[in-house]
């Protein structure tokens, strides 16, 4: 069995996001790039599965859509334990375009299981994984919070709003995963970092897609008004404010 993990590179969550002088782009100067948090959990689970005795998982491959800015992040994924990496060489745009670019790659190399994170922490769109499944025509499920292998099939839990199903699914499958698939992401070992230097990172050309959406401008949200402080001991006052001013009680 071959597992692919779709991997986005994103600015570290604590990074300040600066809008460029033309306000039609983000100024990424000095930004620290990291593996998208959900993709890191997906990679962690893929590696855990591969290491199970008799798992039948031959390979875990990370697949990125990005320019060379993503390379250090991809190397980190290799250091964590992925066997090899593929980078489709283009800056990612809207989710449907990325999904089409990924689908074109997955048409050239077949995987039994493709994992994608719930969303990327930059644009928070949360659609690429499902769109990929839709374009590729594979079985596709979102809300996946646990994943196991069982006699060549995939046993997973799907968290719906209000219910949880345990499903047994025949590959190939695109699974959009969330917290629970793994709890704490793996970090690279020293040995992993050394090995990552020589693991294959294949760069492939993207197919041409026409972007349907364009980001035409950025702005900062209005600053929130000051927090109204209530002295401890005056909890009655807080309740009165919530009733009469905020009207939420």
């Amino acid at each position: 069995m071959k597992i692919a993990v779709c991997l986005s590179h994103v600015p570290d969550t604590t990074t300040r996001i600066k809008i460029g002088s033309q306000s039609d782009q983000i100024d990424y100067t000095g930004v620290q790039w990291v593996i998208n948090p959900w993709d890191e959990l997906a990679l962690t689970r893929a590696l855990e599965l591969k290491e199970l005795p008799g798992s039948g998982v031959d390979e875990v491959v990370v697949v990125n859509v990005g320019d060379s800015i993503a390379d250090p992040v991809i190397r980190k994924a290799l250091a964590i334990g992925a066997d090899r990496a593929v980078r489709v060489n283009t800056a990612p745009s809207d989710s449907l375009s990325v999904a089409r670019i990924l689908a074109a790659f997955f048409a050239t190399e077949r995987f039994d299981l493709i994992l994608a994170g719930l969303e990327s922490s930059d644009y928070n769109g949360g659609m690429t994984g499902m769109l990929l499944g839709g374009v590729l025509g594979y079985r596709t499920l979102n809300g996946i919070s646990a994943l196991n292998l069982e006699a060549g099939k995939l046993k997973l839990s799907r968290e719906m709003d209000g219910s949880r199903q345990i499903l047994v699914v025949e590959p190939p499958l695109v699974a959009v995963v969330q917290k629970g698939i793994a709890i704490v992401p793996r970090i690279p070992s020293m040995r992993g970092v050394m090995q990552a230097r020589t693991k294959p990172l294949q760069v492939v050309d993207p197919v041409k897609v026409e972007a349907g959406l364009t980001t035409i401008g950025y702005s900062y949200p209005k600053p929130k008004g000051a927090c109204r402080m209530v002295a401890p001991g005056n909890e009655n006052e807080l309740i009165a404010l919530l009733k009469t001013e905020a009207r939420v009680l």
Binding site: G125, M130, V135, N142, E159, D161
Partner: peptide
Amino acid sequence: NDTHSKALAALIAARLEFGIVTG
């Protein structure tokens, strides 16, 4: 933006080749 609706949203957008905007 519940889980099931988001899944259907993506699949119908892929099928109809509609743009998709979330959030």
